[in-house]
């Protein structure tokens, strides 16, 4: 009998073991829902699949009676717009400040204590401030995502930049590079995939901040909708929304991973080496 650390599932095996928890969760929900519904056909806590399909058909494929919008798509668009804007600004800040801090000693000396302190401010605690300063509409939500995510991205990128072998920077200088050329040709191309990875890790927090902000003050958005229909205990809407948000987050993670694999072939070359 071989040790368990040496036994590996085959292709089909990996697929089976990967699918198992999903199947168990779905089956568990189905059974629990059927049991509750058998007791009380009007139970709202664990609606059957049919009810969820009907709810999705209502919010996603029927125009809203009051506004004429397809609610789920309008919500998705609004949320993705805020998220994209917030993450975009945070990424740009990380690139400029992170690489600056990592590469230029004066920038590091000037900014690193400040950024370290800033990153410890709980973003949700400053949300009221953001609402007061930026108003209740789009800007405050975007700023919350930036405030929540940018310090992490900046610090991560600064650390990755500092970790670059000094040999590479010396070598570039002996090839006659000025600081700008070093940034452009040596540091930036090697930091972009690191940044994409950091961005993947910060997708979770970004959604958290987005939904929190939408829950408190918004007129559309995925988070807004969930908290709105909570008043009617509309689990048949909430659960598909949660699944949809999860799917969107998963897809953006996949997209970033694909971006790394596609645009930086040298990363894979590194892993293939002995």
């Amino acid at each position: 009998m071989r040790r368990i650390i040496n036994r590996r599932p085959g292709r089909g095996g990996a697929l089976f073991w990967g699918a198992l928890p999903f199947l168990v969760a779905c089956a568990g929900y189905g059974v629990a829902s059927a049991l509750r519904l058998a007791e009380n056909p009007n139970d709202k806590l664990l609606p059957p699949l049919s009810a969820m399909v009907a709810a999705v058909a209502r919010v996603a494929f029927t125009p809203d009676a009051r506004t004429g919008d397809y609610l789920m798509w309008a919500d998705t668009l609004a949320s993705l717009h805020r998220l994209g804007l917030g993450l975009g600004v945070a990424t740009a800040l990380a690139l400029v400040i992170g690489i600056g801090m990592g590469l230029i000693p004066y920038v590091r000396a000037g900014l690193s204590p400040f950024v370290a302190m800033l990153s410890m401010v709980p973003p949700m605690a400053v949300l009221p401030v953001l609402f007061i300063v930026f108003g209740l509409d789009e800007l405050s939500k975007v700023v919350l995502i930036v405030v929540g995510v940018a310090p992490f991205l900046v610090r991560d990128l600064a650390m990755r930049t500092v970790e670059m072998p000094r040999e590479q920077l010396i070598k570039a200088q002996t090839l006659g590079a000025n600081t700008w050329q070093i940034v452009l040709r040596v540091v930036l191309p090697q930091m972009l995939p690191r940044l994409a990875d950091a961005l993947r890790l910060s997708l979770g927090p970004a959604w958290l901040f987005l939904i929190s902000a939408e829950a408190i003050a918004a007129t559309e958005g995925l988070g807004y909708r969930i908290f709105l229909v909570r008043r009617y205990m509309a689990m048949d809407v909430i659960l598909p929304y949660v699944a949809w948000i999860t799917l969107l987050a998963f897809a953006s993670d996949l997209l970033l991973r694909w971006f790394n694999a596609r645009c930086f072939p040298w990363l894979r070359a590194g892993k293939a080496s002995p």
Binding site: P165, K171, T174, F264, W266
Partner: peptide, 14 residues
């Protein structure tokens, strides 16, 4: 002054 180190002398992304 050109230089060759024991390691990390070349750029991995090129």
């Amino acid at each position: 002054r050109g230089v060759v180190f024991q390691r990390y002398s070349v750029f991995p992304h090129l």
